[in-house]
Nucleic acid binder design. Structure first.
Lengths: 207, 207
DNA sequence: GTCTATATCGAGATAGAC
DNA sequence: GTCTATCTCGATATAGAC
């Protein structure tokens, strides 16, 4: 292929600036939500002027949508990796570990996503009903097969996924509440959550 | 006491109107978040004029804070009820049931709270660090006693509470995502979640 | 107590010089 | 490509009649 697939030819500098804007926007959007964020805040954080932001993106919403699309790709990656041929409880524990690490390393992304879903998923509803639903359905079949083969207990795969998502993302999305409750504890919440969650889910899955 | 404790004398009609406004505001705030909601939306939903709303509340934020304060009272009620002298697993299952019922019956309150925490709890941080923290600490001691007495497994009480909160509230806060994944399933998510969660937590707690 | 009309302000987006 | 200046609009909150 001789050149980029996109019709728009983007220079290296353009991509750099775009990255800087998205990085700043992620900071702002995850802290204040879409409606609570202003282009001015993003501009300040990016050390750019407001019109300069709007030179690279058509409007505020376009920045938000770009972030959500980038996010969704990586967000579902761990779920893709669940492999029917490996030991079931190992696979689930690996999945928990990966989701918990993502919550720890990408809390802004987690909050951005939580905000979007809370507001009724105005921008990603089609992806939820399409990509996500299909992927979960596929992986639920694996779980059901494991159950049928007696490798794990007979549980509802959908609720299993909901519970894993809820418990892991909780430490990013509700970090303020977690910190308030733990307060003087010296250990990192994510570090102590890991064995707790793995134990909880693997105990429940034992045949 | 001869009359109401408050210096401001409130008539029945005033309390009624205030209730109507709060009810409408809960609708709006839980759907669009604080920043995404306008007094106009609340006024329309309440069938009142915008200035009339501002006759009963100083400003938009005052409505929001009033809602959060009312919410917090009832929100922590189930946690209060955990009783050291009853069978541990029964008590935890009762708590899960109550939290799940609250998520089902008061999804607007759950979303309002989730929004507030996601934004860093600007209005209720003191309550989290005070009331909530103290209450959790008290109930965590009960859990630890149960563990010491060999009545349940040795687990971290704080993470137990986090997991129960996360999994139950998930069905209210992330309802759009839950619906998207389940889609054609005919059963109510809350109904099928109940036995799943009770099984998960009681299995983990068995000594 | 409730309304219509309006002051005021913040923020998204654009015009046009450089 | 980037800036200053500005247009425009929507939303909070208030003034003042009824």
């Amino acid at each position: 292929m001789a050149r980029s697939e996109t019709t728009k030819k983007t220079t290296r500098i353009q991509r750099q600036k775009t990255e800087i804007i998205l990085e700043a926007a992620l900071d702002v959007f995850s802290d204040f939500g879409f409606r609570g964020s202003t282009i001015d805040m993003i501009a300040n954080r990016a050390n750019l002027s407001k019109p300069n932001i709007l030179y690279y993106f058509d409007n505020k919403e376009a920045i938000h949508i770009t972030l959500l699309e980038k996010l969704l790709e990586t967000w579902l990656e761990p779920l893709h990796e669940i492999n029917e041929n490996n030991p079931p409880i190992d696979e689930i524990c690996k999945y928990i570990e990966q989701k918990l690490n993502m919550a720890r390393d990408f809390p802004r992304e987690s909050k951005l996503f939580a905000n979007e879903i809370l507001q009724g998923a105005p921008h990603v509803l089609p992806e939820l009903q399409g990509t996500l639903r299909a992927l979960v359905e596929k992986k639920a079949k694996i779980i059901k097969n494991w159950s049928k083969q007696g490798k794990i207990a007979d549980i509802d795969p959908n609720h299993l996924f909901f519970s894993i998502w809820a418990t892991t993302q909780h430490y990013a999305d509700f970090d303020i509440q977690v910190q308030s409750v733990l307060n003087d504890e010296t250990v990192d919440p994510f570090q102590s959550a890991s064995p707790f969650l793995k134990k909880m889910f693997s105990t429940m899955l034992e045949p």
